[in-house]
């Protein structure tokens, strides 16, 4: 792990400034991005289910559970 991450650009693109091997690469940027994505997904899911969907009354319920459903909705 002590190897330097910097290598002389040797191949294809001119912007290629260093060579990073498998062991030196920690995709922390990816983790950041995908963490943000995760939070967005969780927020939007709750919003869609509990605000958009359950707020879109009436909903199809089974006859016997109607009381429970209304109770839960008004609570």
């Amino acid at each position: 792990m002590s190897q330097t991450a910097e290598h002389e650009a040797s191949n294809e693109t001119s912007e290629h400034v260093r060579e990073i091997g498998h062991d030196e690469f920690d995709p922390i940027g990816t983790l950041t991005l995908i963490g943000i994505y995760f939070l967005i997904l969780v927020f939007l899911w709750f919003f869609m289910y509990f605000v958009e969907f359950l707020g879109n009354d009436p909903t199809v319920v089974s006859g016997t559970l109607v009381f429970l459903a209304t109770g839960a909705r008004s609570a």
Binding site: W45, Y49, T64
Partner: peptide, 26 residues
């Protein structure tokens, strides 16, 4: 991320199940 993805998936299924069982949405 694999763990987080599984949490999402299980969480989604749990929400839907709550709607069915808890709220009686049929």
């Amino acid at each position: 991320w694999l763990v987080a993805a599984m949490v999402l998936i299980v969480g989604f299924i749990a929400t839907i199940t709550y709607g069915s069982v808890g709220l009686g949405i049929t």
